[in-house]
Amino acid sequence: MRAMAVNRAEQRAATRRALLAEGRRRFAADGYHHVVLAEVARAAGVTKGAAYHHFDSKAGLFRAVVAEVQQELGERVATAAERHDDLWEQLRAGCRAFLAAGTDPAVRQVLLVDAPTVLGWDEWRALDEESSGRHLAEALAALTAAGIIAEQPVEPLVRLLSGAMNEAALWIARGGDPGAAEQALDRLLAGLRTPA
């Protein structure tokens, strides 16, 4: 009896993973408004009923995909930052990793284009703040505490930098020059440093 329960739980988890993977692929390639949940289910090899059971609606599947992509982006930013010991280089590396993510179709279409309109600004911002926004806030707080940037309230600075980087990532996603964006970012960040 217990083995059957475990097997059913594994089956449910596999169904959910398949729907998430296919949903992510389609949302990234086609955009939210061109995706049909029944087609996602069919391509994932499950019934339409199973898709509704796991996600309740296309919007529910999209919300789960956004959360997954946002979490991965936050991890990508943190991993890039953690490769450096120097706090300033951690900030630069994390910001650059965020900008580079603009070339990823899932980040571009799902997070930058569709999520703000489909989920609404407040929900999208909350998801952003839980992942990459949190890392940016931690980095700026550490730099302020170390005296590398001037003492100031961190929250407005996080919002200004986050907004600028979201716009730059979207610009890169639409064909902007990543190298030019990185140079502009370095000049912007340099303005935050306290004089040596």
Score class of each variant (00 low, 15 high):
Val69Leu: 02
Ala43Trp: 01
His53Ser: 04
Ala67His: 11
Asp56Tyr: 09
Val65Asp: 02
Ala44Val: 05
Ala50Asp: 04
Arg63Asp: 13
Ala51Gln: 09
Thr47Met: 04
Val36Thr: 15
Phe55Trp: 05
Phe62Tyr: 05
Ala38His: 11
His54Cys: 02
Ala51Pro: 14
Thr47Cys: 02
Lys58Tyr: 07
Val36Ser: 14
His33Cys: 11
Val36Tyr: 15
Asp30Met: 12
His33Leu: 14
Val40Thr: 04
Glu68Cys: 05
Val66Tyr: 14
Gly45Pro: 06
His34Cys: 14
Asp30Leu: 15
Leu61Thr: 12
Phe55Asp: 00
Ser57Pro: 10
Tyr32Arg: 13
Val46Asp: 00
Tyr52Leu: 09
Ala64Glu: 11
Ala43Asn: 04
Ala67Leu: 11
Ala44Cys: 07
Phe55Asn: 01
His53Leu: 09
Phe62Thr: 06
Ala41Pro: 15
Lys58Val: 06
Val40Leu: 04
Phe55Pro: 01
His34Asp: 15
Val69Met: 03
Tyr52Asp: 00
Ala59Asp: 09
Ala51Phe: 08
Phe55Tyr: 06
Glu39Asn: 05
Ala59Phe: 06
His33Met: 13
Tyr52Ile: 04
Glu68Ser: 12
Tyr32Pro: 03
His33Gln: 15
Val40Ala: 03
Arg42Phe: 13
Thr47Val: 02
Ala51Asn: 10
Glu68Val: 00
Gly31Asp: 09
Ala64Trp: 02
Gly45Val: 12
Ala59Arg: 08
Gly45Glu: 07
Ser57Cys: 11
Gly45Trp: 09
Ala59Val: 13
Arg63Tyr: 03
His53Val: 05
Leu61Asn: 06
Asp30Ala: 13
Phe55Gln: 01
Val69Asn: 00
Val46His: 01
Glu39Ile: 00
Ala51Glu: 12
Phe55Lys: 02
Glu39Met: 01
Val35Trp: 13
Gly60Asp: 01
His54Ile: 05
Val40Phe: 03
Val35Lys: 10
Glu68Ile: 01
His33Asn: 14
Ala44His: 06
His34Gly: 13
Arg63Ser: 12
Gly45Ala: 09
Ala44Phe: 04
Val36Cys: 14
Ala59Leu: 11
Tyr32Phe: 15
His34Ala: 15
Ala67Trp: 07
Phe55Ile: 06
Tyr52Met: 00
Thr47Tyr: 08
Val40Gly: 02
Leu37Ile: 13
Lys48Pro: 08
Ala44Ile: 04
Ala38Asn: 12
Phe62Lys: 08
Val46Met: 07
Val69Pro: 00
Gly60Lys: 03
Lys58Asp: 04
Lys48Gly: 01
Asp30Trp: 15
Phe55Gly: 03
Asp56Gly: 13
His53Ile: 00
Val36Phe: 14
Ser57Trp: 05
Ala50Lys: 02
Asp56Ile: 12
Phe62Pro: 08
Ala64Tyr: 03
His54Leu: 01
Tyr52Arg: 03
Gly49Lys: 05
Leu37Gln: 12
Ala51Cys: 11
His33Gly: 14
Asp30Glu: 15
His33Arg: 15
